[in-house]
Write a protein that binds this DNA or RNA. Structure first.
Lengths: 339, 339
DNA sequence: TCAAAAATTGAAATCGCTTTGAATGCACTT
DNA sequence: AAGTGCATTCAAAGCGATTTCAATTTTTGA
């Protein structure tokens, strides 16, 4: 069922039918009603390719995911939030997955050059993100989930990682902890650097010296976290508290604590960052986990909104959002042991 | 840079340039070389929409994800496998996320009617899957990840869930367990039904009666698993072993066991199904987790391959693959306690 | 009642590509 | 030298929508 068929069926021109369906004002209401009804009845849907060619809009946004570190549980939650909002505007989400960094830039080039997408989403940027620079050069609009330092302004949405870690660290200091380990994300990623900043700020505000042995940078998997926590627990004096970068990390740390024969919440404390996964709930852990919490799904939804604003012509410089992070205290964070 | 521009730049017709780039034989090798070089040099990439309109192929495949239960860690792994292979063929993956079941069928209709995708992937089917029936009716090619009972043949890839559970259950029976709990997926999903079949078969082969109180059906989250396992552990006589449907489920069960003051691997055993998440490793749990293992990422890769075969014209009836599942025994499964 | 203005409809161009059918040039026979 | 066949190339017609500009009908005002 093409536009032409529908037009013939109705005894109208394609022009009028097209206008009627797209809500143009210069069409009689009676005609519009007749057209809409027939379209619904016959299940007419404009051919996406033709529509895109005619309008010059791709009707899709792109997302390039690096297999290894980006396609984790974080991304599915984010995607879920994003997708819901985009669907209402009939905008597709095109996902390209790549293995290496080389492939990654090529993928952006490919999507841009073939005009497959109207805009892109950039995730987990580094401090000076190459991908962002590339997209600016290619003049592809994009919204950044996170922040980066590039020459021109970019649209972004980020959570207050610095503030979150500063509060979490301060809280542990208040509880008497002095040796606080930080299991952070990969060095170079903005969010990890920001978290480090918050951690450092809190320490130095109390005059607690920073010990590099208590800081680890890696991807957020239970395995790496386990190993890092394990070796940290062998230090003397050992850390009395952990700041875990994600819930996966927290699981690994938890295991290390248990294996060392200690009790979480009494012998050792932990505050983890929680992106709110529906299948891994801080409230339902044992002991319940103290967290810095920010829903990554909500961020996805909001990113969609910002992207639509951007496509609607809102100036890049006006699209900035910094979300506060909640500190939720539960059982895993207790007073420092007295020994 | 359009085809037209490139053609003018070279002093050739669009026809020749198009043919040169698409590898048609009726073009002089010297010309082809000249064209290829100029195209690479000037960074020419055909406009995706135009190409699609002209060829009638969408150059994309679709994936509809139900927010709640389908967009978990399983899906990201799967997607990662799928995407890698598709990218090599310059085929996009269009992801549509929906919240409700109603929306879901509508999403399939939408993608099909607007001819946005050439084929689709169907995930986690039910025994008699509506979506599969819809797609057949709409004449959209698709490959099923799993199996379903519908009238006409469909292309599918599935793992041997029945065999996996039969072996896992038998193994536990061999170890002397008689009260074996099954934490299965949602009722109605084929994979869950198949697992139940395997479980039942193993029990009845030994003449061990089935106790409905020892079977739970739900989504694979740590929370639900925790609650189910907890209440099962309150039964008398209580279960001495658990079969967990996923690693998330295993985490919940593990917590319940610990909270009940018992030891995994000695007081209670567990075998979990492992889809091989890079961030949650059975080998690195404590105690290490016995699993039925099958890489969902590899399944994604293979699904891409099957999809390409399908698009290449291979008959649906010839596209069937049933993968065996490994049983990997580690520390979490031990002899039944003697009391 | 009739011209002018407003409302409504339509024919044809356009988007950037592929592909059909025709045309051109060239080497080789005869 | 003319005819044959082959290798190359090109002009133009789609693909299915939107959109410009023109045509037609209806309404309005004097």
């Amino acid at each position: 069922m093409r536009l032409k068929d529908l037009a013939e069926h109705l005894g109208l021109s394609q022009t009028t039918v097209s206008r009627a369906l797209n809500g143009y004002p210069e069409v009689k209401e009676a005609t519009r009603a007749r057209v809409s009804e027939a379209a619904a009845q016959l299940g007419y849907r404009p051919n996406a390719s033709a529509l895109r060619l005619a309008t010059g809009r791709a009707g899709a946004i792109g997302l390039v995911l690096r297999g290894a570190d980006e396609l984790g549980p974080h991304m599915s939650e984010f995607l879920s939030g994003l997708g819901g909002r985009m669907a209402t505007q009939d905008i597709d989400i095109v996902v390209a997955t790549v293995a290496s960094h080389q492939e990654e830039l090529a993928a952006y080039r490919r999507l841009a050059a073939s005009q497959r997408v109207d805009a892109m989403i950039l995730h987990s940027p580094t401090l000076k993100d190459e991908r962002a620079e590339l997209l600016m050069e290619l003049k592809v609009p994009f919204v950044l989930h996170g922040r980066t330092n590039v020459a021109k302004p970019v649209a972004w949405l980020d959570i207050d990682n610095t503030g979150a870690l500063e509060r979490a660290t301060s809280h542990l200091l208040d509880l008497g902890h002095r040796r606080i380990a930080l299991l952070n994300g990969v060095k170079g990623r903005t969010f990890a650097e920001h978290r480090e900043l918050g951690y450092m700020a809190a320490l130095s505000a109390r005059g607690v010296p920073f010990d590099p042995a208590l800081m680890g940078n890696s991807v957020f998997t239970d395995e790496v976290a386990f190993r890092m926590a394990q070796s940290m627990l062998e230090l003397r004096p050992r850390p009395t508290a952990f700041l875990a970068g994600s819930m996966m990390t927290a699981l690994g740390v938890f295991r290390a604590i248990r294996q060392a024969g200690m009790q979480l919440g009494t012998d050792v404390s932990m505050i983890a960052h929680d992106d709110v996964f529906p299948y891994l709930n801080a409230d339902n852990m044992y002991p319940t986990m103290s967290t810095t919490r920010s829903s990554i799904r909500q961020a996805g939804e909001r990113m969609a909104e910002l992207l639509l604003q951007l496509l609607g012509g809102k100036p890049v410089a006006d699209i900035h959002e910094l979300w506060p992070v909640e500190l939720v205290l539960r059982e895993s964070s207790g007073p420092a042991p007295l020994f």
